[in-house]
Design a protein around this nucleic acid. Structure first.
Lengths: 240, 240
DNA sequence: AAGTGGTCTAGACCACTTC
DNA sequence: AAGTGGTCTAGACCACTTT
């Protein structure tokens, strides 16, 4: 009884239990903050804190002037951890060049429509796990005079970190696109499989907070890489 | 000036701006709660609320007894919205059978090791968008006598909703696995492409809160479906 | 001992919803 | 008018960290 948890945690746990066990069902209204404060002998602030937890977890929704209602949950959101290097993997750089971007990269970085006047820095690398080459990266950024030396950049692991000196890292975000595609020859060569092998491709567009497109990358996952795993995020915090 | 925002939102926005603009850098310590309360002329509770927002956004981390520190952000987490039906798509049920599961499904549902004594309910459906068949689903659940009629179940859209009557929906979560595979004949037939066509496959294992394995599904995405899109979740809430 | 964040209270006032 | 959630305050006490 009354673990060593804090009051708001105990209250949250009790209400969570009542919801999870089915005592309250979807669309049901919980007792009001004042009622809960009375029945738990706690202040309204503490009750609100407990209810806030449940709201963050998506279990409950507060409607101003009406009350708290149990949410019908959706399990359609998944959190993918797509770090570039997992434990046991190493990056090996292949080549770094300054050249004219292909059509796809030009559009992603919103470069001049054609005529290929602008060049981009392109970094090619592969990911090795033991003996295997499990993925292959193409990374592109606009070429700028003020850019730090490429030699320094390749020491960064995550692509976004390459921009840390020019953009505050907190002001960056990434758009991701996953698809299946046949490996072109240059990729198949690196990964040691036949051209045309279907692969999972992850494209990342790195944008600054002011919506500037500052980087673009394609990662080709070899069949050896394995599946991408994720979980539907429902209980972000504690357990019942 | 001083928009019609609430005090805690204005304070959060100012601090967020100071971080995003680079005024505070990673690992820097913010002024203490008391200092902020003084300088903003607000109560400590309000300051805490503002800082709490930043903490939820991952911009800042509070260390007990030390202070608030600016976080070095990671852009490796992506949120995938993998709802079974997107706008403009419809589900068409193909067949519902009671049969012996294949090896993969048997292991996923932790059924008896072999000898195939236990049967599963399997629901086959395809997703259509206009003229195109863009995906194909195989869904499996253990067969139980107490199960509601299958005819009722097929009216549910999301797979997890099929279990709503037997398990409180809030006590369910889903494990997801994404990979590339050659379409077997039964799938290729439904999707109108050649057997062996490489496809994106999403496997879902539905678990109850008590870790029971209650459902398993495979979804095959036709090349017509398009890419899966996601965003690195950094700013969950408002704008600067 | 002094400073920091973490929990909690009692009460005020406001905005929204229902009757 | 009465009930609901939303914001905010001033102050208390505790736990942790640094000096």
């Amino acid at each position: 009884m009354s673990d060593s948890l804090h009051l708001y945690e105990r209250i949250a746990a009790q209400l969570r239990g009542a919801i999870v066990s089915g005592e309250y069902r979807a669309e049901d209204m919980l007792p009001s903050e004042n009622e809960l404060a009375r029945s738990y002998g706690a202040s309204r602030v503490t009750i609100r804190r407990a209810l806030g937890e449940l709201e963050n977890e998506g279990l409950v929704r507060a409607l101003h002037g009406k009350g708290y209602f149990v949410e019908q949950p959706h399990h359609t959101n998944f959190t993918l951890d797509l770090r570039e290097l997992r434990p046991g993997e190493v990056t090996r750089y292949r080549r770094i060049t300054l050249d004219f971007p292909d059509e796809e990269t030009r559009r992603a970085l919103a470069l001049g429509p054609e005529s290929g006047r602008e060049r981009v820095v392109s970094v090619w690398s592969v990911v090795e796990r033991g003996e295997d080459v499990v993925a292959c990266d193409e990374k592109y950024t606009k070429y700028e005079r003020a850019q730090p030396t490429i030699e320094r950049e390749i020491n960064y692991v995550e692509f976004v970190d390459m921009f840390a000196e020019r953009f505050p890292p907190v002001s960056i975000w990434v758009e991701l696109s996953l698809s299946v595609e046949a490996a072109p020859e240059r990729v198949a060569g690196e990964l040691g499989c036949a051209a045309g092998t279907p692969m999972l491709v992850a494209r990342k567009l790195i944008r600054s907070r002011s919506d500037e497109r500052i980087g673009y990358s394609r990662r080709w996952y070899s069949p050896l890489y394995g599946a991408l795993e994720a979980r539907s995020g429902y209980y972000v915090t504690g357990r019942l």
